[in-house]
Amino acid sequence: MSLRTPNPLTNYQTRLDLQRSKERMTDLSNQISSGNRLLRLSDDPTGSALVLDFQNSIAINKQHIDQANRATSFLKTSETTLSSLDDSLQRLLELGQQGQSDITGSNGRANIANEVDGIRSTILSLANTQSQGKYLFSGTNTTTQPFTLTATGANYAGNGASINLDITSSTSVSTNIPGNTVFFGAGGQGSSTDMFTQVTNLRDALTSNNSAGIKTACDNIKNIQSALNNQITDLGGRQASIEQITTDLGSYNESLQTIQNTYQSVDYPTAISEWYQEQTAQQASLSVISKTGKTNLFDYLG
């Protein structure tokens, strides 16, 4: 049996195949130049949706990392402030030692009292530290100056609330220490753990040459300092745990990115060899078509 084959040039299949091969070459070269395997949603709907999901997870992790960094910046500022406070307390204890010594006369104690008074102002300004527009030690009353000095100690205008930030969807971290716990301690305002009261007591005892008073104040300040050190350690601990989470989120994002790339990115060796295959096929069929179209019986008739 022989089939009629009227005109190879009008052969639909050949035309369609050529068209498709050209289309694939265009797609491949677009993929290669963009580095993106998913040019259209319809290329791989499931892959495209997965890529969106990965992008979303990555973006949310980045949000968490950003939030963790903001939390760290608050904690770091608090820690620095409390370290300065620790230095001030250390100096107060030294001054208290000097004040208790018999060698120091009443004049000397008056001078020491002056320095203690200065340190009290420093402590006040540390207690009213601001960072990014908020008072660090006023709980959630961040726009209110937390501490004001009075004759006997200090008043606290903040509250005892903590400010939490979410650094993962399930982990929340407190980014502040309310001022009353730092400066008034466990006993509360006016007690033996109240920093301002004890510093004021020390100054007054120095002024009045009251050795017993100086010693009591110094002992209290020593306790306050050790409580402060606990809080500094706590702040450091919180930062360390945030850093751990940030590192985890970062490496999690890297692996998510890697998986996303397997869906989204072009595999260059494959894409390029596919492109060459298409090109070869196209050239071959073009050259065959150009030859078959030429011969015709009319060419041989006189």
Binding site: T5, N7, Y12, N296, L297, L301
Partner: peptide
């Protein structure tokens, strides 16, 4: 469509060799 059209052409299209004959 291309298969059908090719099939149709086999029967119905003009073949110049045939016409020359």
């Amino acid at each position: 469509l291309s298969a059908l059209s090719t099939q149709r052409d086999r029967a119905s299209a003009v073949d110049l060799d045939e016409e020359a004959t």
